[in-house]
């Protein structure tokens, strides 16, 4: 992925490699968690279950909604 400062043919440092590997591992973990939660007789809560749990507490629910709004504004508008 082309992050500013990383031109084609640039030497990849160990810090860059470690950082990229960690991001990739986190992304893979997120996908694996989603997949595991949808397997038959899941032992892991689905995202929808987590949302219901959050929704049960109105303060936390509003905080999560505001967080969702901030993420959208930060990435897409600003």
């Amino acid at each position: 992925m082309a992050v500013p400062g990383r031109g084609a043919g640039a030497v990849v440092t160990s810090a860059q490699a470690l950082s990229d590997a960690l991001w990739a591992a986190l992304a893979a973990s997120a996908l694996a968690t989603v997949a595991a939660s949808h397997l038959g007789r899941p032992r892991l809560a689905r995202l929808s279950t987590l949302v219901r749990r959050i929704e049960a507490n109105r303060v936390v629910y509003v905080a999560v909604l505001v967080g969702w709004m901030w993420v959208g504004w930060h990435f897409f508008a600003r």
């Binding site: 992925m1 082309a2 992050v3 400062g5 440092t13 860059q16 991001w23 990435f75």
Partner: peptide, 24 residues
């Protein structure tokens, strides 16, 4: 990890989600 990347810098070595998003 986002906080580590944010404070450690520079972005070229430790890209945040925002910088990854901008390039993607």
């Amino acid at each position: 990890w986002e906080l580590v990347c944010f404070f450690l810098g520079p972005r070229v070595d430790h890209p945040t989600v925002s910088s990854l998003y901008d390039s993607a």
